[in-house]
Amino acid sequence: MERHFERELDDLKRHLVEMGALVDRQLDDACEALFGGREDLARAVIDRDVEVDVMDNEIDKQCQNILALSQPVAVDLRLLISALQINNQLERVGDIAVNVAERTEALARSTTFLRTSRLQEMIQIARIMVRDSLDSFVSGSAAQAGRVIASDDVVDNLGRETFRTIVRSMQEDNAKIEPGAVMLILIHHVERLADHATNIAEGVIFLVEAKLVKHNPGVL
């Protein structure tokens, strides 16, 4: 017989997956807005952020209630701790979608420059990391979470390379200084996106294997 408590945990997991789907859609639209120069879509992303915030609060509340009323232990306790951490990271992924959308207007007339930079590739890898981290949560796969964590260096290296390429373009062409400066900010946001995916993956490893890999990559 499935207990009431287990239904609550399932409900929490489902809620987190919905939160993941919502921020993934936000990222999807923010990227389409940015690279397609679509300010209407950027506006929609910014307006929809309130939904992410509402869901963030709901999940926090749900975790608080379970902690207070059911006092979970062992794997259930780890699920609650991971859920709080993952939820927090997803909310910040949502904020990054807004940050990306907010740059659409400034880059609307520089989409060619934007597409020829490796920023698009960088965003793609970071987005795959976010998706894979959520998949690893759903499937309970510490191995998949470990691969997400390993990808963080790829994004960081690509970020440094993209940074240098953009600066070179800015040095060579004065017209690229303004859009280039905005793109440098975007590099930082995308690096943060990969960091959030890494943090989610660390939460999954804690949940599945009870290992704290945060600040301690040697444990992996």
């Binding site: 207990r3 287990e6 979970p72 232990v73 062992a74 794997v75 259930d76 306790l77 780890r78 009870a210």
Partner: peptide, 18 residues
Amino acid sequence: KIFTSPEKKQTEDYVTGR
């Protein structure tokens, strides 16, 4: 350790009420 990450599955099932 028993209440966060017990070694044995039987222990985990018991402390989590399963």
